[in-house]
Write a protein that binds this DNA or RNA. Structure first.
Lengths: 134, 134
DNA sequence: GGCTTCTTGCTGCAGCGCAACATAAAAAGT
DNA sequence: ACTTTTTATGTTGCGCTGCAGCAAGAAGCC
């Protein structure tokens, strides 16, 4: 198994949840995931939430706080990076923008306030390029 | 009335909700607000949500997405500013850090992706100075 | 096999958020 | 002042979100 050490046990349930998110290039709510897994026996909400917890702990999935939804994470964020999500308010698509030097600026700014930050996640709402053209 | 033009009608209900948030220097959930207003007749959830919608539209209140909670906003953010919330994971206190030049960097970065951003809100979780000392 | 650990399933529940409709209050028109 | 229109609040009801607590099964270890 490829990611053996990182994701200790990618069980069928967890794989199904991850694949559902990978197939959809927009964030899915937990109950939307349930719908998509329903053909082979509908899992209970708690089951999906536990799979999501596992996937999030292993950096395979991110939670979009402002949408109560989840997206699969392709890029291998190295733990300490800044993640910027661009969330289209019209089509719900989510892209990731390069955070770049913003990360350090932000961390320095918060440390100046005596604050010890965890790796920040930024969600920016707006209109994506595709929807803009229409 | 001072903020007459901006907040068109600061009705008693809206004022109560705002005061509840001002009295508490941490974010409150909608149902927590209901508890605090309960002495003079407990408002229905929808009533509080509508007051919060109004206050948010007028920039008096922010929603903390990652907490499903709301905070009163003292600073007069000029519409186009970046807002950085520092959220303590231990005591739930919320501070605002100066966004400074981060705003333009972020906007430029997202525009480069063909994205038209609204004014971004950044929520950074961590441990605040006060909790750190203990 | 026997034990421990991990994972999944089941029941139930509390908080969040709002739709739809009805009522009351305020603002605007005449 | 009276009617019309707009705006705000109340009532009912419901769906989504997220998880606690317990029981049962599956995987790994001795």
């Amino acid at each position: 198994m490829l990611c053996a050490a990182r994701a200790q046990r990618l069980t069928p349930m967890r794989r199904h949840v991850l694949e559902a998110l990978l197939d959809s290039h927009r964030p899915l709510g937990a109950y939307e995931i349930i719908e998509r897994l329903a053909r082979h026996g509908r899992p209970a909400p708690i089951t999906v939430y536990r799979a999501l917890d596992f996937l999030r702990d292993n950096g395979l999935v991110h939670r979009i706080e402002s949408r109560n939804a989840f997206v699969a994470c392709v890029h291998n964020h190295g733990g300490d990076d800044l993640i910027v999500f661009l969330i289209c308010e019209r089509c719900d698509a989510v892209g990731e923008a390069p955070g770049g030097n913003v990360a350090e600026t932000l961390k320095a700014s918060s440390r100046a306030a005596g604050f010890v930050p965890k790796s920040p996640v930024i969600e920016i709402a707006g209109i994506c390029a595709h929807c803009r053209e229409r």
